[in-house]
Design a protein around this nucleic acid. Structure first.
Length: 322
RNA sequence: GCCGCUUUAGCUCAGUAGGUAGAGCAAAGGACUGAAAAUCCUUGUGUCCCUGGUUCGAUUCCUGGAGGCGGCA
């Protein structure tokens, strides 16, 4: 969107916001039924801000279960189709762009609904990030090279020396987090643990937090059904055109479930479509579980069944009254 | 019909020179400091195909049977 290209706005302007503005959070695991609910319940008074780390990418439509153009025409969605799948999107980008989107929505006299499944984005949209420097591709490259040359144990040893506090928090096998902690130390000369993590909502934000939940057995069925629907809708063609664009396993957008499985299958030389579909179902289920445990740790969540539209409407009404 | 290989966790398979067994994946639970649809942690799970025999003791060795795979007919 054009908003994202606004150059050099000072950061302080963004973080001094239209305070106390109303925001709705709507989240739940893949396949609970967020999109349908949005379509039914959120009328012209609302606009949606996407909080899904894959739907931000262009060309990932079917596999990311992106809301259809029809739905998006009826109900505006911000932060959808804003990056190319080879570009790296991140939480920091999300917070910045979501703030801008919320301001824009509010200026139209509407209420923003932040909706999606990326728990990490919700958490940091609410509380903000620490002041630790953002990821730097050059330094990360250096750290990965060290990891390759010396191994994980060596890197963890190094982390224990330069940042013992983080080393107690991060598991020795967690290459992902060890890399980030070392990267911060290399870049800033200060340990990651020296940056405090905010514990209070930014800007006095008081969102209405709606968490959608279903019986897990039911969710499994919905996921299986949705995956076979994706294949019917042409997931394979979507993959083909991505490959034509030059897509590789290493593209950030290709980490998504419904995409990674194809690249792994190609690498391992087992190309049964049925096997790939099974993988996608399984990975989605695993992901839904991880989402659930993350969301469960959030405070002040109104847990609702996605089909309890009356109940959700009541919540919205009473939130908007006050 | 004959010969060979095979049968162990929900799945794929290790293993026990005879003392009732363990990996990966799945399952269940959990973590989450700017890559998070990522990354990582914890925890079960077994008539070791059936049947006799040898043995103090057999999932392991032997006999017979059943299922699967391959070869020759």
């Amino acid at each position: 969107m054009t908003k994202s290209s606004t150059p050099l706005t000072t950061r302080t302007d963004i973080s001094r916001p239209a305070v106390q503005q109303r925001v709705v959070f709507l989240f739940g695991p893949t396949g609970v039924g967020k999109t349908e609910l949005l379509f039914h319940l959120f009328s012209t008074a609302f606009s949606v801000v996407n909080a899904d780390s894959m739907q931000v990418y262009r060309h990932l439509d079917i596999g990311s279960a992106k809301p259809s153009p029809e739905i998006r025409a009826a109900l505006p969605h911000y932060l959808v189709d804003i990056y190319d799948p080879w570009e790296q999107f991140s939480v920091g980008d999300f917070i910045r762009l979501a703030d801008e989107a919320c301001a824009d929505i509010a200026s139209q006299g509407k209420i923003p609904v932040i909706s999606g499944g990326t728990a990490y984005y919700f958490k940091h949209f609410l509380y903000g990030l620490s002041d630790a420097p953002a990821s730097n591709p050059i330094i990360r490259e250096q750290v990965s090279k060290q990891l390759e040359e010396h191994g994980l144990a060596w890197c963890f040893e190094l982390l224990s020396k330069v940042d013992p506090i983080s080393a107690t928090r991060i598991h020795p096998s967690d290459a992902y987090r060890i890399t980030r902690a070392l990267e911060v130390y290399e870049g800033a000369g200060k340990p990651l643990s020296s940056y405090a993590l905010p514990k209070v909502p930014r800007n006095g934000m008081q969102p209405l937090i709606i968490g959608l939940q279903r019986d897990f057995e039911e969710l499994k069925l919905r996921i299986a059904r949705r995956v076979s629907l994706m294949f019917e809708q042409g997931l394979l063609d979507e993959i083909r055109s991505l490959v034509r664009l030059g897509a590789q396993e290493s593209w950030p957008g290709m980490q998504g479930i419904g995409y990674q499985e194809f690249f792994r299958a190609m690498k391992n030389g087992e190309l049964s479509l049925e096997g790939i579909a099974d993988q996608i179902v399984r990975n989605s289920r695993l992901y839904a579980k991880r989402q659930n445990t993350f969301f469960k740790s959030f405070a002040d969540v109104q847990w609702m069944h996605p089909e309890d539209e009356d109940g959700i409407r009541r919540l919205l009404d009473s939130y908007l009254e006050n």
